[in-house]
């Protein structure tokens, strides 16, 4: 019993300690954002790495999610004779929840894990130490550009995911299931609000998710034990922790935004 309590205490202390180090890391990175201003091309390269390279998975998933939403929504709505509201259902679910959340989860799996592995390997192969010895601060030169790129890339990816999803839902609902073309769009337009749904959902949520996922990924990589096992474990932790963080935060944000 005491052993159980002790191990619980140990685990909690260890996670608090990690949280503390993670926060210090976050502050250190934020403090160095200013050094990026004359070096925007570094951010550009990272937007390519985390954004453009995640595009395929985002577009494909977005299309399928939209089509499935249309199929499922249609089945439910048609029993109430409200199939015209399909556009609203698809658009609201995508803009408020599925767009930002699924894009963030995919981003964590595709770009987050890659960031952790990259930084972790740079640590393991002494590249970060070498930078320090070359009088180059790895936090400004390596971490900060990736951090900014993540925050820029995810909102764009979420917007693309949502738009592609709605088009997918349209193709499936109107093209396949025979929902009225005009009703699909007009119902959507009268019920989806620019600020409340698209602003809060797609833009604000995904900026916050981008920040959190990128932060976790970079911290895990930077903090990884510099061995192959250490980097592998850190990569797994990135995907697990950032997915949980996204889902948890989504609940809190939804509570704050839509109530």
């Amino acid at each position: 019993m005491t052993e159980l309590l002790a191990s619980l205490g140990r685990t909690s202390l260890a996670s608090f300690e990690r949280l503390g180090r993670g926060s210090l890391f976050f502050c250190a990175v934020v403090a160095r954002l200013g050094t990026l201003l004359p070096r925007l091309e570094l951010v550009l390269a990272q937007v390519w790495a985390v954004g453009v390279r995640s595009l395929v998975i985002i577009v494909v998933s977005g299309a399928f999610v939209g089509m499935v939403l249309a199929l499922q929504g249609y089945n439910t709505l048609v029993t109430f004779g409200a199939a015209e509201s399909l556009g609203v259902v698809v658009a609201k679910s995508l803009t408020r929840e599925l767009g930002p959340v699924l894009a963030a989860l995919l981003f964590a799996g595709r770009a987050g894990s890659a960031l952790t592995a990259e930084i972790g390997l740079m640590r393991a192969t002494e590249q970060l130490s070498a930078l320090e010895m070359m009088a180059i601060d790895p936090l400004s030169r390596v971490v900060a550009p990736r951090f900014v790129a993540g925050i820029i890339a995810l909102p764009l990816l979420a917007a693309i995911f949502t738009a592609v999803g709605i088009v997918g839902g349209y193709l499936c609902g109107v093209g396949l299931l025979g929902v009225d073309d005009g009703a699909f769009w007009s119902q959507m337009q009268s019920h989806v609000a620019l600020g409340a749904d698209i602003g809060n959902g797609v833009v604000v949520k995904s900026i916050i998710f981008g920040l959190v996922v990128t932060w976790i990924a970079l911290f895990e990589g930077y903090d990884a034990i510099p061995t192959s096992e250490g980097v592998a474990a850190a990569t797994t932790r990135t995907v697990v922790n950032s997915s949980l963080a996204v889902l948890g935060l989504d609940f809190v944000l939804t509570g704050l935004m839509f109530n």
């Binding site: 390997l121 740079m122 192969t125 002494e126 590249q127 130490s129 010895m133 601060d137």
Partner: peptide, 19 residues
């Protein structure tokens, strides 16, 4: 410290080249 480091070079065991 960074100024001092510019006056020294270090050769790491693995080379530590940027991949």
């Amino acid at each position: 410290l960074y100024a001092a480091r510019k006056r020294m070079g270090m050769l790491f065991q693995s080379g530590a080249l940027l991949t």
